[in-house]
């Protein structure tokens, strides 16, 4: 058993085989093999408890259905089911996705990272700059002149014939 501790001091007990899906955790465990039990506690400090919960749910789902098996022998129906489950899993607000990306990056969980990034890019896809700015609350610090004239004329190639 591995214990993960989130920033709000909540503890999460996870089977080692399940947590091994994080390459970072796997390396840490590998480094400390044979040492005291206290070393099996891992702090994930900037992540609030909502995220480890989600990550562990994701781990469990994938632990029950590892990807290699998923591709080789999984029936079409089961693959569809997993896809549907993933779609539902990633269907959250951009804040949560943001946290998931950070967590997946630092814990090194490639499939979770790819899935979350893809979802964010789907959200941004085919939207105008104003919409993207609004969704992700990016503060636009360009001056009025820059926004109205300089940038559009410098980057006209990006927009040219957009609506033609």
């Amino acid at each position: 058993m591995i214990t993960l501790i989130s920033s709000d001091k909540r503890k999460f007990h996870v089977l080692e085989e399940v947590a091994n899906q994080s390459l970072t955790i796997r390396d840490v465990i590998e480094d400390r093999r044979g040492r005291r039990r206290a070393d099996r506690i891992i702090l994930v400090t900037n992540i609030n408890s909502k995220i480890p919960e989600k990550v562990i749910v994701y781990w469990l789902r994938h632990f029950l259905m590892p990807e290699e098996i998923a591709h080789a022998s999984m029936s079409h129906k089961k693959a569809e089911k997993l896809k549907k489950w993933e779609a539902k899993f990633f269907d959250t607000d951009i804040d949560t996705l943001n946290d998931l990306i950070l967590a997946a990056d630092s814990l090194d969980i490639p499939s979770l990272f790819d899935g979350a990034c893809e979802k964010v890019s789907d959200i941004l896809k085919n939207r105008s700059a104003e919409e993207v700015g609004e969704i992700s609350k990016i503060e636009n610090e360009f001056t009025h002149e820059e926004e109205e004239e300089e940038i559009p004329s410098e980057n006209a190639w990006v927009w040219r014939n957009e609506f033609a």
Partner: peptide
């Protein structure tokens, strides 16, 4: 809040035109 490298990973999944249009954001 995401570091540049992760944002670039996200942009890589977009169509190049959508990715280039993010230049107007900030």
């Amino acid at each position: 809040n995401l570091p540049d490298s992760l944002l670039i990973d996200i942009l890589a999944l977009l169509d190049p035109r959508d990715a280039a249009q993010t230049c107007i954001l900030s």
